[in-house]
Design a binder for these strands. Structure first.
Length: 499
RNA sequence: GCCCCCAUCGUCUAGAGGCCUAGGACACCGGCCUUUCAAGCCGGCAACAUGGAUUCGAAUUCCAUUGGGGGCGCCA
């Protein structure tokens, strides 16, 4: 549904220097949604032109992240495609040829400045409070001098011969008309001395060769766009359309980074965020459907996504809302499905004494009890460990709940124990019909009786509803834990009461 | 320092001149429900950065100021 009939082809072009960051993933998501909405292609291209910073295994982590979130790609490093290869390191000749052509055309030149000279130059510029940038020292070197330098074996890079005058205007889909003065742009490097291209050259060559129609990227690239446009022009390529997405910021309003806590998508995965919640939340950072719709499936996002509704304002990554949304998604899962997703977390976090594999059947009994109490799946072990461990550890005085004392608590437990033993069937209904009247009989409020039992049975004052908990635990374990509680009360040093 | 972008509740946002005494959501605070905790329901708090201009009328247009962000690498 783009104006021109041109097919939508967009790309996600991460550089494999580490774990994929949520900001990056949000960019990937917008590209993916845009592609799917327009029935276009979503391409993954690995920008590994920085040999020093390339991290082992990063590519797989990035691809796994996309898979986990449900973003599929039509062309990419693992599956290939008509415009491959999809690793920039395997496309070096393309960039070198383009750079060479630019030199021949006079749009670029060799530069022999050493890193030391550049450092000194920058230091001087900073000292004089001038904008940093290459001083064009090598721009005018004569042909004979080039030959001499070349023969002497000096290391060299290729720089773009940036026009000294005029301006470069362009129309950003999200921001509208933007104009840069060419005079403010220095002669940036196209080809490094190791023969690898910089981002500027590589992305232009690839985006053209891969027939990318739209570039959706973060706003941090906005000021590089004029350089890219100059390159398109010099190479005689038709530029794609640009859309610069609002940045994702940390709580201190600076560019989201590691010091803001968990930011890599892998961390969210290991903490127990659901991919569907993650997607939904990320989609809403800089995009909205209307004034009220918040919970949307992947399909609804695809159906409704539009660059027209992308905001221009940077967004702070708000964890609290993500947690809330994750809770919503957890509650919307069937109990069976939640069980399935929970098991890996229990397997991972429960103490080693707990027998593996953990019984799916047993977890299925527990899942409904915690489903509406969990926001992040990694919390579940802390919420349910007393179901798996042996006798829970706890302070005896927890057994004496509000307005009770040792005698009352002891009596309540002993009477309960007696009646529990005689219970023909052990389930929620029988427990309730037995325990409620018992409270009255003992002249206790239900909260007092149930609270005492809760501590006895779970070792804590906060737990899922009592009857369900007891049922899941089973008669034997309940009885033995109540017995322990009675003993604990008897062994308490002195009369204490809790008000 | 220079260049560019941005500006509605603490946060995510709706709003494209009268529908706005500015709507929704998270968070927070009350209440209800209730065996604890949650969940749920009901209610509350809370914003158009400032100053000009245009207009009968401006959160919405224009200009300044202020504030915030980003960029300025043989990183991407």
């Amino acid at each position: 549904m783009t104006k021109d009939k041109e097919k939508v082809r967009v790309r996600y072009a991460p550089s494999p220097t580490g774990f994929p960051h949520v900001g990056n993933i949000r960019t990937a998501l917008f590209n993916w949604l845009f592609a799917r909405h327009h029935r276009g292609s979503f391409i993954v291209r690995i920008e590994n032109t920085d040999v020093a910073r390339t991290a082992e295994g990063a590519v797989e982590v990035i691809l796994d992240g996309l898979r986990w979130l449900g973003m599929d790609w039509d062309e990419g490093p693992d599956i290939g495609g008509d415009f491959g290869p999809y690793f920039q390191s395997e496309r070096l000749e393309l960039y070198q040829a383009a750079a060479k052509r630019l030199v021949e055309q006079g749009d670029a030149y060799y530069c022999y400045c050493t890193p030391q000279r550049l450092d000194e130059m920058r230091a001087e510029q900073t000292r004089l409070k001038q904008p940093p940038g290459y001083d064009r020292h090598c721009r005018q070197i004569s042909a004979t001098n080039h030959v001499l330098k070349f023969i002497s074996g000096s290391r060299r890079v290729i720089r773009f011969r940036t026009p000294l005058e005029k301006q470069t205007p362009f129309n950003d889909i999200i921001r509208g008309e933007v104009t840069f003065e060419n005079a403010n742009i220095d002669d940036f490097i196209l080809l490094k001395s190791d023969g690898y291209p910089t981002y500027h050259l590589a992305s232009i060559v690839d985006d053209h060769q891969m027939q990318i129609s739209h570039i959706l990227r973060a706003e941090e690239w906005l000021s590089s766009t004029p350089r890219h446009l100059m390159l398109y022009k010099a190479l005689g390529y038709k530029p794609p359309q640009f859309a610069h997405l609002p940045m994702l910021l940390g709580t201190d309003r600076s560019k989201l980074s590691k010091r803001h806590g968990a930011v890599s998508i892998t961390e969210f995965q290991t903490q127990g965020y659901l991919p569907e919640a993650m997607i939904n939340f990320l989609a809403l950072l800089g995009w909205s459907l209307d004034d009220k719709t918040e919970i949307m499936s992947l399909k609804e996002l695809v159906d409704n996504f539009s660059l027209k509704r992308v905001s221009q304002t940077a967004a702070i990554f708000n964890r609290e809302k993500l947690e809330w949304m994750n809770g919503i998604y957890i509650r919307n899962l069937s109990s069976k499905e939640l069980t399935r997703r929970l098991i890996p977390f229990l397997e991972r976090d429960l103490p080693p004494e707990v027998k593996r594999p953990i019984s799916v059947e047993y977890v299925e009994k527990i899942t409904p009890l915690i489903q509406e109490r969990v926001k992040i799946m990694e919390e579940v072990t802390g919420l349910t460990d007393f179901f798996f461990n042996g006798q829970p550890e706890y302070q005896s005085d927890l057994l004496i709940v509000k307005k009770m004392n040792r005698e009352l608590a002891g009596k309540a437990l002993e009477t309960s124990l007696l009646k529990l033993r005689r219970l023909p069937a052990f389930n929620e209904e029988t427990l309730e019909t037995m325990l409620r009247p018992l409270a009255e009989e003992l002249e206790l409020k239900v909260g007092q009786l149930f609270g005492t039992l809760r501590v006895a049975v779970t070792g804590r004052t906060v737990a899922p509803p009592l009857f369900q908990t007891m049922t899941a635990l089973g008669k034997e374990r309940c009885i033995s834990r109540i017995r322990v509680a009675i003993t604990k009360l008897k062994e308490m040093p002195e009369e204490t009461s809790n008000s």
